[in-house]
């Protein structure tokens, strides 16, 4: 997500709006945003209902065995259709913003 913040102007120029989603509460998101300087929207899904709907639930994958989302990115166009998907295979490997930007530029 650091990469997204760094390239926010490029995303904006490509007409793409990044939105982050996790099980964090709004308060936790605010704390994270103030620590990291992220300015894009951070949405809270504490019950993981949306995460489940997207089939991204990672049971016990978080701190102290909390259920969290597995990392994944979806590029959704204005008709609500998914145009690009990225799933991490290894949580240590950071998602690259340049791959997301390249996919974003493909959308007319």
């Amino acid at each position: 997500m650091r990469g997204i913040q760094k390239n926010l102007k490029e995303f904006e120029a490509a007409g793409v709006r990044p939105v982050a989603i996790s099980v964090d509460t709004p308060e936790q998101s605010r704390k994270l945003a103030s620590k990291t300087g992220y300015t894009f929207p951070m949405l809270s899904d504490p019950t993981a209902e949306t995460i489940r709907r997207y089939d991204l639930l990672h049971k016990g994958g978080g701190m102290e065995g909390a259920d969290v989302s597995r990392p994944a990115e979806f590029l959704v166009d204005s008709s609500g259709t998914v145009r690009w998907v990225n799933f991490t295979e290894d949580i240590r490997v950071r998602a690259r913003a340049d791959a997301m930007l390249a996919a974003a530029k493909e959308i007319k």
Binding site: M1, I4, F11, A14, G15, V16, R17, P18, V19, A20, I21, S22, V23, D24, Q28, S29, K31, L32, I51, Y54, L56, H58, G61, G62, M63, A66, V68, S69, R70, P71, A72, E73, F74, L75, V76, D77, S78, R83, I91, A95, M100, A104, I107, K108
Partner: peptide, 16 residues
């Protein structure tokens, strides 16, 4: 205000 061409949903594990 122009609507975006696309939204990038970034699901992440959460604060840790």
């Amino acid at each position: 205000v122009v609507p975006p061409k696309a939204v990038l949903l970034v699901f992440y594990r959460g604060y840790w």
